[in-house]
Design a protein around this nucleic acid. Structure first.
Lengths: 252, 252
DNA sequence: CACTGGGTGTGTATGAATTACACAATGATA
DNA sequence: TATCATTGTGTAATTCATACACACCCAGTG
């Protein structure tokens, strides 16, 4: 028996000594690249289907920590912006789950009904090195508009996460977590347009963002484009945190 | 052994054959009476502490159904307005849980760590007959501002539910579920003021509500008060549902 | 090397929505 | 019958959101 098989067998048989049964955590990790909103997905070794990165909750671990652990393991990043948004608990949400070959006909705690807590997260695309876990053969970014059929109800979870992200645009300047340190106003706007899947007025967008008073306009411009060079901006951390503390209210 | 004791013992020993372990549901049930926002609380038989009405999730039951069942059992009402709002999953959230005398030193599934799904609900105060369950000695309405120390993290759950309720004021005309059939504009306003814990301008409030075009102004007035008799209103069900379908956007 | 195309930088005018505010009317109470 | 607290209603001021236009610039083109 290979070492991985052994590990898997042990996990299937006795994982519930380490983890709580019936409860899992799934993360919809958003990134932004090439003017497109991306989601990080995993591909299972056994079945070849894609799914959300997720995990189980250790018996002495909080839900949030469990999600952070998953995030850390898949992206290599700590201190990720993370929000719980919904629980998915239909009894048939894992209908069609395929048994592990290795288990034959015997039962595993992992084959039982699971209730999963959905989290969404924002990460800086360029800082992430996607890493598969020991049950997966691949870990990749997918364009939000081109997500394949995922296992269980994971497509639904992505949809709901996107809705939650859209709502959060109203009280959170999402760019802070999704963009690199310096960015142009058009890039910033494209981010919002991708999330909302709707065009925005250039001038009004800029006006609104400037009015928040959390951006610093840099003297440099971004060159290399085939057009007029746009200015670079970055978040003024001090002002940003002050604004977040007293609560934003933008209308998107 | 009394029948109740027998039932309890059976529940503590084998309840996890019927219910999922480690998962529960807690409901923050809001009512409105005497111009005050109320929450329905239960008092445990054994320990005398107050807590939120809650329950466990049957192995083949959805989370929502489980919450509905709890609601039904405590209030006698069906078709209650109900929303999931957050999961509470700190590992120490049940620290200090006192053991059941009846169990002596032996373990029960119910003494383990629980992750609870928080729901909030809106009910029409006058239609509710609070009913204790078989583990409780009392079930009563409490003023939102006078809630006693509750078990575990239930005070926190109430706080978070109230925040969720406040947010929902922006896309849901809460009165529909909390008020009786007919109500005056001042009553309606008081409801909003209690939830928001802030005064509102009488004239602007009325203007905003009328503008929604979901109310019907009745020719009658409410007499009995020591002052000018205010008109009565009621929700126009047809218009109300149409408006809900296309989504409201009021700013509170 | 002038020209062009497409994207950027900025300001203003319009209309909608929100806020602030005042006075007359009413019904019980004294 | 006078009083008091509360209701009914309208308008002005302000803020906010939306729509829109022209000058500028950079790279690529012929």
């Amino acid at each position: 028996m290979e070492p991985d098989s052994k590990k898997l067998r042990e996990f299937l048989l006795n994982g519930d000594r380490t983890f709580l049964p019936h409860i899992s955590v799934d993360c919809v990790i958003f990134g932004f690249h090439d003017n497109q909103l991306k989601v990080l997905l995993l591909k299972w070794k056994d079945w070849g289907t894609w799914c959300l990165p997720g995990g189980f909750v250790m018996r002495e671990e909080s839900l949030d920590d469990s999600a952070k652990r998953t995030l850390m393991e898949r992206t290599g990043l700590e201190n990720i912006f993370l929000r719980q948004f919904q629980v998915f608990g239909e009894p048939d949400r894992e209908r069609g789950k395929r048994p592990f070959k290795i288990m034959g006909s015997s039962k595993s705690w992992i084959m039982e009904r699971f209730i999963t807590v959905g989290y969404w997260a924002l990460v800086e695309f360029s800082k992430v090195t996607p890493r598969a876990d020991w049950l997966s053969e691949d870990c990749q970014w997918w364009d939000i508009h081109r997500i394949p059929k995922l296992i269980y109800d994971h497509n639904n979870i992505v949809t709901k996460a996107l809705e939650a992200l859209r709502l959060s645009l109203n009280d959170h300047p999402v760019g802070y977590n999704l963009l690199g340190e310096k960015f142009t106003m058009p890039e910033f706007q494209r981010l919002y347009e991708t999330i909302l899947d709707a065009p925005l007025d250039r001038r009004n967008f800029q006006k609104k963002m400037i009015a928040l008073d959390i951006l610093e306009k840099l003297p440099e411009r971004k060159t290399g484009g085939a057009h007029k060079a746009p200015f670079l901006y970055r978040f003024d951390k001090r002002k940003y945190e002050r604004a977040m503390k007293q609560g934003l209210k933008l209308g998107f």
